[in-house]
């Protein structure tokens, strides 16, 4: 079965794609932190963050459709929740919108959530669409992200679709035996399937560990790192860190 790549378009060539993943990790992480901690009424600062991201998007030559599609997967969840806030929260003065009253405080919260999540999600999309996931993992390793966490992400990336396939096969096997049933024992069958999946994953874990031992694994993960940070990396990281910081402080 075919599944979408997590890091689709990460194989393109562009100035952003070619950067050392560490520079991108540090830069985008800084951008997100600065953005999230910006008071919501500094509207101009958010404009700078978004402008910076759009410039990077243009440099990266990513298809806009792809980025829009990714944004549409994540944003609605956040916005649907936030959209109710102006109607329910109180304080900060209120406005009459036809028959309903919205609170000024609630509107500011909505703006806050919408602006910050747009900037952050776009940053993550830019990062993951310009860096192959394995390189991202290696970058994290070199930045001393805890090895356990990196290994966990690495195994997730490798096995998530193997698991999805396994689940789909089990569902097919179940459905081809004309499984219908009432929800009471539906839930029982689903429970069994989850248990079976858990057991299979556990056993796979043991076999993978044996395969690692067989090749001389002794507790440390070693990987080859093929990037050499240079002037481009320093330039990128300082740009993406300093511009938002400056915007936040000056504006």
């Amino acid at each position: 079965m075919k599944h979408a790549f997590l890091d689709e378009y990460s194989g393109l060539r562009s100035p952003i794609h070619q950067l050392d993943p560490r520079a991108k990790l540090v830069g985008f992480a800084a951008l997100i932190v600065v953005c999230v901690t910006t008071p919501p009424n500094l509207y101009a600062a958010f404009a700078v963050y978004l402008g910076l991201e759009l410039a990077l998007l243009w440099l990266s030559r990513l298809p806009l459709r792809h980025v829009a599609r990714r944004m549409l997967i994540v944003l609605p969840f956040i916005l649907v929740v936030a959209a109710f806030l102006p109607f329910f929260s109180r304080g900060g003065g209120s406005y009459n919108l036809g028959p309903v009253r919205v609170s000024g405080h609630g509107l500011l919260v909505l703006w806050n959530v919408a602006a910050k999540s747009t900037v952050s999600v776009l940053a993550v999309i830019l990062l993951s669409s310009t860096t192959p996931f394995p390189d991202l993992l290696r970058g994290m390793e070199r930045l001393r992200v805890p090895r356990l966490l990196v290994a966990l992400l690495s195994f997730t990336y490798r096995y998530i679709f193997v698991l999805v396939d396994e689940m789909q096969r089990m569902r097919r096997a179940r459905d081809s035996r004309a499984w219908r049933g009432k929800w009471l024992w539906q839930s029982k069958v689903v429970g069994h399937m989850v248990a079976a999946l858990f057991l299979r994953s556990y056993e796979r874990g043991e076999r993978v560990y044996a395969a690692m031992l067989a090749r001389g694994y002794g507790g440390g993960m070693h990987t080859l790192y093929l990037y050499e940070p240079g002037i481009m990396e320093v330039g990128f990281a300082s740009l993406v860190m300093l511009v938002p910081l400056a915007a936040r402080i000056i504006l």
Partner: peptide, 18 residues
Amino acid sequence: DQLFSPTVFDDVAFGPLN
């Protein structure tokens, strides 16, 4: 079970690196 790394290269390099 044998191929547990994110890329084929990493898998084949795992033993030599160890």
